[in-house]
Design a protein around this nucleic acid. Structure first.
Lengths: 154, 154
DNA sequence: GAAAAATGGTTGATGACGCAACCGTTCACC
DNA sequence: GGTGAACGGTTGCGTCATCAACCATTTTTC
């Protein structure tokens, strides 16, 4: 088994990792080039807030699929850039609701345009039904692995 | 356009990112649980070395698809763990060839077994031809993005 | 053969991630 | 109603990634 050379480049994990880094890198560069001081991961948080302003960390964590430590730091970053504001809940002072500032709201159009453009380029020449099948497979893989996940919040 | 809520979870980038993190995390935990003090990214370097001992940083960079700074640090980590040794080339003293130590060689069987097991679990219930199609799509996406990559080594 | 350019690798800064330990608040239960 | 468990968030530590600047060693070029 270990005599036949293992082909890293053909493995699912390798491909998925590279595509992930490539897309994130591309988008980060696009954001910066267009003058937006926002990272892709911060943008993901914004996406959720644009649709559900005032979400708590826990809700963001579940939606975006990151653990709570990551959310804390992403919101830190957004707050530092003045795009977002934390407010402790009145009923439950443990919960921090995340509110958008005017600056945070104003980024929506611009960032989404860049994202759509990048996504279009990434998927260029790939028929929709192949793309959908690929996504289905990825969702299935995610499900397969998630079963054996260390139980956490979310 | 920005009125219809953008569905993060359905986007290719989101899926790919999550699958990538989930697989890497799973493998990192498996490695640790089995008593191996090696990370997935370090393992990728080892994979190449097991087949091409003495590879230079540049060669590793091209093969594994990481930039040279990353390679430097991964090799640092492997060296610190005593799995690998750097040797400056005789012809060209800029090049550093990376050699395996006995400890580095000995990990092959054990690590590969864990990888194969994790991969099998991740792909469970997915017909081979769907998996292949998915990989084809990912390769195509990678190609699409790579064209607009910042020119670098590799 | 000396100056300039290219090449191989290293380093520092910044951002992201996971894990584990922690703190403060709320809830459950007797 | 007080104690302990559970919960929401924060923080420290280690790893990985990028970018840009840098150093040292070839290689080119005139």
């Amino acid at each position: 088994m270990s005599d036949v050379p293992y082909q890293l480049q053909d493995s699912l994990g390798y491909l998925v990792h590279r595509v992930s880094l490539a897309m994130a890198g591309r988008l980060n560069r696009d954001f910066a080039a267009a003058g937006y001081d926002v990272t892709v991961e911060q943008w993901k948080v914004l996406v959720r807030l644009w649709d559900a302003e005032g979400a708590t960390h826990a809700e963001l964590s579940a939606r975006i699929g990151k653990n709570k430590a990551s959310i804390t730091r992403l919101v830190d970053g957004l707050e530092r850039r003045g795009l977002v504001k934390r407010v402790a809940g009145r009923r439950d002072r443990r919960c921090k609701r995340v509110l958008l500032t005017e600056a945070g709201r104003s980024l929506r159009e611009g960032l989404m345009a860049l994202v759509h453009a990048a996504l279009a380029e990434a998927q260029a020449g790939i028929p929709a039904e192949r793309m959908d099948l690929c996504k289905d497979v990825l969702r299935r893989v995610l499900g397969n692995i998630s079963e054996s996940l260390p139980r956490e919040d979310a």
